[in-house]
């Protein structure tokens, strides 16, 4: 535990030094860069520090914890969730503007580099938080958001039961699932969360991260043109998918208010799965996702 926090302290010191050196270089006036190019260089140089800092802090905060059935989320998970939300709030509208501004051929009455700057700050927060969660889950023991090996059919069957009947039957028919047997009981998280929501979040966040890193890498490495083209195209596709995911996430959680309470206070409520088609959650083993 002490070693983990020592590593985290070293990561904090390195991140601060890296940020000071990078910003100092950009602000020295010695480089012939305009604001936008300068921001591009700052962003790409700070990325490794943000990832390392997130990973180190995640590992330091992770690890086994005392089981507490009254808690659904640990403070570190709540902090990570809202940091990620803040990152989306900054990066999504600015990313949409960069794309739609080109399509509509219009400009805002403020410099474009400010839009990029806000986008990069949001992207940095997202990268930091993703690394944080990776480290946090790697160091922890709770895997209740993941579908265990060999359990996909059970989780997909549970998902088909939780969906509106017509949609559930359609998906069951396409995937060859049998809905006539006993309905599976959900664990700490609903089947919608384990079999659909979390895997799709993982996919879109991986896609936006890889394509974003490929786009940013061109300022320090000669990325081939075709690769850059596909990275840019898929980055926009991932952005649209994230817009859809955020809308769906808000729809799902607002319909289950106890989830909003849990992600604010950490406390689990007796009515965590109030939707009639969702099976009641079983007793939680740990205090975190």
């Amino acid at each position: 535990m002490i070693v983990r926090w020592l590593v985290a302290l070293v990561a904090i010191a390195l991140a601060v030094s890296g940020a000071v050196a990078t910003l100092g270089q950009a602000g020295s006036g010695a480089q012939p860069w305009d604001e936008e190019l300068s921001d591009n260089f700052v962003f790409v140089k700070v990325i490794p520090f943000a990832l390392a800092l997130g990973l180190a802090l995640g590992i330091a905060l992770g690890g086994p914890r005392r089981a507490d059935a009254s808690r659904r989320f640990a403070p570190a998970t709540i902090a990570g969730h809202w940091l990620l939300a803040l990152g989306f709030l900054l990066a999504l509208p600015t990313g949409v503007w960069q794309y739609m501004g080109g399509i509509l051929d219009v400009s805002l009455p403020l410099p474009l580099y400010l839009i990029y700057r806000i986008h990069y700050i949001g992207a940095m927060l997202i990268l930091f938080t993703l690394a944080w969660f990776l480290g946090y889950w790697w160091a922890g023991t709770d895997r209740s958001l993941l579908v265990p090996r060999g359990q996909w059919r059970r989780h997909l069957t549970g998902l088909a039961h939780e969906l509106p009947p017509r949609l559930g039957r359609m998906i069951a028919s396409r995937l060859g699932l049998d809905l006539r047997g006993e309905r599976p009981t959900a664990g700490k998280f609903s089947f919608y969360e384990t079999a659909f929501s979390f895997p799709t979040w993982t996919f879109v966040l991986t896609l936006i991260t890889i394509t974003g890193l490929a786009k940013a890498a061109r300022y320090v490495y000669p990325v081939p043109g075709p690769l850059l083209y596909w990275a840019s195209t898929l980055h926009v596709a991932a952005m649209v998918l994230i817009l859809i995911k955020v809308l769906d996430h808000l729809r799902y959680t607002l319909a289950r208010w106890s989830l909003v309470v849990a992600m604010t206070t950490g406390r689990a409520s007796a009515s965590l799965a109030p939707a009639p088609r969702v099976a009641p959650a079983s007793a939680a083993g740990g205090d975190d996702e």
């Binding site: 399509i103 596709a237 649209v240 817009l243 859809i244 809308l247 769906d248 808000l250 729809r251 607002l254 319909a255 208010w257």
Partner: peptide, 24 residues
Amino acid sequence: AALLLGGLTIGLFAALLAWECYRL
């Protein structure tokens, strides 16, 4: 095609969210 498909899907999910807000 991407604009059309993306726009329709975002519109559908925005409507579903608006409905959920009304219900809440």
